[in-house]
Write a protein that binds this DNA or RNA. Sequence first.
RNA 1: CGGAGCGUAGCGCAGCCUGGUAGCGCAUCUGCUUUGGGAGCAGAGGGCCGGAGGUUCGAAUCCUCUCGCUCCGACCA
Length: 440
Amino acid sequence: MRLSRYFLPVLKETPAEAQIASHRLMLRAGMIRQQAAGIYSWLPLGYKVLSKLEQIVHEEQQRAGHIPVLMPTLQPADLWRESGRYDDYGQEMLRIRDRHDRDMLYGPTNEEMITDIFRSAIGSYKQLPLTLYHIQWKFRDEVRPRFGVMRGREFLMKDGYNFDLTKEDALHAYNRHLVTYLRTYERMGLQAIPMRADSGPIGGDDTHEFLVLAETGESEVFYDSAITDLTFGDRAIDYDDKAQCQAILEEFTSRYARTDETHDEAVFNQIPEERRRKARGIEVGQIFYFGTKYSEPMGATVTNEKGEKVPVHMGSHGIGVSRLVGAIIEASHDEKGIVWPDPVAPFGVGVVNLRQGDAATDAACEDAYAKLAAAGLDPLYDDRDERAGAKFATMELIGLPWRLAIGPRGLANGTVELTRRRTGETMELSLESALAKLAP
RNA sequence: CGGAGCGUAGCGCAGCCUGGUAGCGCAUCUGCUUUGGGAGCAGAGGGCCGGAGGUUCGAAUCCUCUCGCUCCGACCA
């Protein structure tokens, strides 16, 4: 992409309303524009990152055999009357009436609707297990939206739902989701720690929240520092292997890690003092097992081997995709701007023309741009008629992992400058060597 | 939902107390000079002063109502 033809409305000054780093940087980098309290348009740069996160989520869900669907944002109130949540949910649910005076709502979550879909088509235990998920916009009419996309009213969430014959199978689905989430967050360059949490209005017995440690997090968390040494890595996983998934759950949840809702000071104090950590975290996902809470009242049953109709065991599992954009920035930025982890960066490399209009420099930049694009590196070429300083500042603000600076000074020696955003480390080398380094 | 603020040019702000030509910086446009860390000079464009009522000869400014947004707290998949 040529910056001169792109839409990247960066701001030199910080809008007054933005309090935390991710919100400030998203506005300054031209990623989002606020349309109302807690409601944002996603501009090209932000949308690109959001799409990359979605893609990673899709890949990891489907790797585990979970099946994508897409449910609507608007739902009929009657479904929610069946589960009893139409009255329970409170004012966070945006209620709408259509032209025929039918009660509708903008979905804050989809347990009822997915249960309805399930019951309309599935009747036998032989069709289980089944896990369906979608990535769709949700609306929760928060009393006080804040922190940009971190606590918006409208937000993009992946929500998945498992249907199983027995509690044991459903708990395997729970474990399987935990495993997929560990890999998902790690692929995004994040450390998200599963912590025992409170189930809240979804209800249920078992639940873990995934938290990214960050000073601006809304949750207070307590953990054993040994847990931050764990990495998922590139493990080969058989998602149908119950023992393997169970072992991973135990590996990642055996150390103390809890939010303030479930914190137990006495247990916490048994950890050696030097490993006790109290910090703040951003909740980026949650998994639940809730059994027959919805299947029973809504009649989602299957016939088992003995010919009996039994309600299915369910769980739901969410990842806050739009919130993750903010969470990644909170976890990865410096005083100059965003520092994207490579896998989620909106562009792979930024090409900076240090002397726009100089024939030799322009030609060298065009050449580099074409080669980077051909190598699949998705370059962003800053070909604006700006001075070098302004281009550097923009590149640092939007946080691309690599910057390739080309100017007459280097060209005289046959070199370009390759700079790593995260470290600031700069190498002067030939274009060919730079290409080899970027696309080995 | 309690408390506190703020709405003036695309962004950041001043002006309001004490009523009388709507301003500053950045950004934008034009020209010239510049050109390796957010350039300089000269010129130009851009405003329903959130909205509606009211007071007044006259309202960005005073009064009333209203809408929107933000912050602190409570709440929060």
